[in-house]
Amino acid sequence: MKSALVCGAGGFIGGHLVKRLKKDGFWVRGVDLKFHEFSETQADDFVIGDLRDQGFCRAVVDRRFDEVYQLAADMGGAGYIFTGEHDADVMHNSVTINSSVLDACHKRGVRKIFYSSSACMYPAYNQEDPKNPKCSEDSAYPAAPDSEYGWEKLFSERLYLAYRRNYGVQTHIARYHNIFGPEGTWIGGREKAPAAVCRKVAMARNGEDIEVWGDGEQTRSFLYIDECIEGTVRLLRSNFSGPVNIGSEEMVTINQLVDMVADIAGKRIGKNHVPGPQGVRGRNSDNRLIRENLGWEPSRSLRAGLEPTYQWIAAQAARNVMPKARVA
Rank of each mutant, 00 (worst) to 15 (best):
V274N: 13
Q42I: 00
I269N: 00
V274K: 12
R52C: 10
K200R: 15
F35K: 00
E227A: 08
Y310F: 09
P277T: 07
P277S: 06
D50R: 05
L159G: 00
R58K: 14
V95W: 14
W151K: 03
S100Y: 07
P277Y: 06
I187V: 12
C120T: 12
S147G: 06
A72L: 05
Y149F: 04
G181F: 03
L33H: 04
E307A: 11
G282Y: 01
G216N: 05
S117W: 03
I246A: 08
Y163H: 09
G8F: 03
K271G: 09
L154H: 02
F38C: 00
K134N: 13
H106A: 08
I210K: 04
T41K: 03
A119R: 07
N245E: 08
G184A: 12
F26R: 00
I13E: 07
Y224F: 13
S221D: 09
S118P: 01
K2R: 12
Q256L: 08
E249C: 09
G84C: 06
R205M: 12
H106M: 00
P243A: 02
P182W: 07
Y125W: 14
V95H: 11
H16S: 08
Y167I: 00
D263W: 01
F26H: 10
D44K: 10
L223I: 03
I229V: 12
H36P: 10
I225C: 10
H172W: 04
Q278K: 13
F180V: 13
M251T: 11
E40R: 07
E183I: 06
R64K: 15
V327Y: 01
